[in-house]
């Protein structure tokens, strides 16, 4: 188990390093640069461009730039944003909370609702619930998330005026304490529903298929032949065996959602990292972009390690010693 854990952590570190290199190269190879944006469109002077390029060290060959980036990174310094001149760590720190709130809550909701309904549908295979859920899962699976978000805004915010259209807090009210939490929850509802609805189909289908498959395993017949009650067989043996694929999907999805909620954040003007990332990309704000990517790859690597660990605890075949 210790060896397994060590290997997982080493793989995680390797993934972070490789993604760091690839991201750095890609950003710098992409056309456009922050200097032309800083210098402005009207009448940029060559002297100014040269001075700015020199200031941000963009003259150096790319590998020298990379080495100096890693050097400052090792000191725990993510650098300064080119556009706002503020420390990257401060900019990210302000935005990471809302993103995690939206992403993690939606994942948890989707896992619980999707898996529970999948299991229920599998046990009542062919029932009205099963058929309806199956149909719905395809509908939501093929719905683009931004479109679903826009539709929800149109119906629940613009027409019915139940929920706010955008943002995370009511800017005109100065809520504190519980009132503030309620306000945030209020604003969270629509984006949360959007991201959750998009994810539920995966968990539903994985859980349903896995339970159906496990129910036909040979060992289930053994327990049945031994006189064990169906409920006990399900609780103790089918559930634990059938939940394994869900854990795998959970790990993959976790990574995907943390970086993938960006588009929903933009639709709902949710003040998360997604918007920060989009602005950083369009402005070619290299240090900020690198900082965001680094945080994302670290959180994804950590998620993967945690999921692998959970998997190993449940499935003895995974812990190769």
């Amino acid at each position: 188990m210790a060896r397994y854990l060590r290997r997982r952590i080493l793989t995680g570190i390797l993934i972070i390093l490789v993604s760091l290199v690839i991201n750095f190269m890609l950003i710098h190879l992409a056309p456009g640069n922050p200097i032309s944006l800083l210098a402005g469109k009207d009448n940029p002077s060559q002297e100014m461009i040269d001075a700015l390029t020199e200031k941000y060290g963009l003259n150096d060959p790319i590998h020298i730039q990379f080495i100096s980036y890693v050097k400052t990174l090792l000191k725990g310094d993510l650098g300064y944003s080119i556009m706002s001149s503020e420390p990257v760590s401060k900019l990210i720190f302000e935005k990471v909370g809302p993103t995690l709130l939206l992403a993690l809550t939606s994942i948890l909701l989707a896992v619980v609702i999707g898996t529970a309904s999948g299991i229920f549908a599998a046990r009542k295979r062919g029932s009205l619930f099963d058929v309806t859920m199956n149909g719905l899962s395809y509908v939501f699976d093929s719905t683009p998330s931004f479109w679903l978000g826009l539709m929800l805004i149109l119906i629940f915010a613009s027409k019915l005026k139940i929920f706010p259209t955008a943002g995370m807090v009511d800017l005109r009210a100065q809520h504190e304490g519980i009132a503030k939490a309620v306000d945030i929850l209020w604003h969270l509802t629509l984006p949360l529903i959007t991201v959750t609805l998009i994810q539920i189909p995966y968990y539903f289908r994985i859980a349903r298929a896995s339970v159906i498959q496990t129910m036909s395993e040979d060992f289930i017949t053994t327990f049945r032949a031994a006189g064990m009650k169906e409920n006990k067989i399900f609780k103790k043996y089918i559930f634990k065996n059938a939940i394994l694929p869900t854990i795998t999907v959970f790990g993959i999805n976790l990574a995907y959602v943390i970086s993938g909620v960006a588009i929903i954040e933009i639709v709902f003007a949710w003040p998360g990292m997604g918007r920060l990332m989009m602005t950083a990309i369009s402005k070619r704000d290299y240090p900020l972009l690198m900082g965001i990517y680094l945080i994302l790859s670290v959180s994804i690597a950590v998620c993967m390690i945690v999921v692998d660990l959970i998997y190993a605890v449940i499935d003895p075949r995974i812990r190769y010693d």
Binding site: F219, A225, A226, G227, K240, R317
Partner: peptide
């Protein structure tokens, strides 16, 4: 259920899968 296993028991084909792999 009372008769199963207590009076009549079975040894199944493919005993490699006759028990749960993760228990």
């Amino acid at each position: 259920r009372d008769i199963r296993w207590k009076e009549i028991s079975v040894v199944f084909q493919k005993s490699m899968n006759s028990l749960s792999p993760i228990h």
